[in-house]
């Protein structure tokens, strides 16, 4: 363990596995796809998506990298969203 962690407040960091950040919902959005070698990509035709950017189909319909409804939800919850 690094010495730096000995003074670490308990509240900081990920509560679970940091690698979960590699598989968050929405990473198949058209803003870019993560390297496929590291991820199991969601089914592009899936009917449900994350709060941002929604499903690929929704994004395509909106002509954006985010589905319109997903974008609105993401904004409402204070999450960033591109484009």
């Amino acid at each position: 363990m690094n010495d730096a962690t000995s003074t670490t407040p308990a509240a900081g960091g990920f509560t679970g596995d940091p690698a979960a950040a590699l598989t968050v919902a929405g990473t198949s959005g058209c803003c870019g796809n993560p390297a496929q070698a590291t991820l199991t990509l969601p089914d592009p035709a899936a009917a449900t998506g994350g709060p941002c950017c929604g499903t690929t189909a929704e994004a395509e319909q909106a002509g954006s990298c985010c589905g319109t409804t997903a974008k609105q939800q993401a904004v409402a919850t204070g999450q960033g969203c591109c484009g």
């Binding site: 962690t5 900081g12 990920f14 990473t27 796809n33 969203c81």
Partner: peptide, 22 residues
């Protein structure tokens, strides 16, 4: 994050990071 006391959560950040990851 543990050192500075900032909680992190895996969640969407649909921004420029995706282009680099891609």
């Amino acid at each position: 994050a543990r050192h500075v006391g900032l909680p992190l959560v895996a969640g969407p950040v649909a921004s420029d990071n995706r282009r680099y990851a891609a």
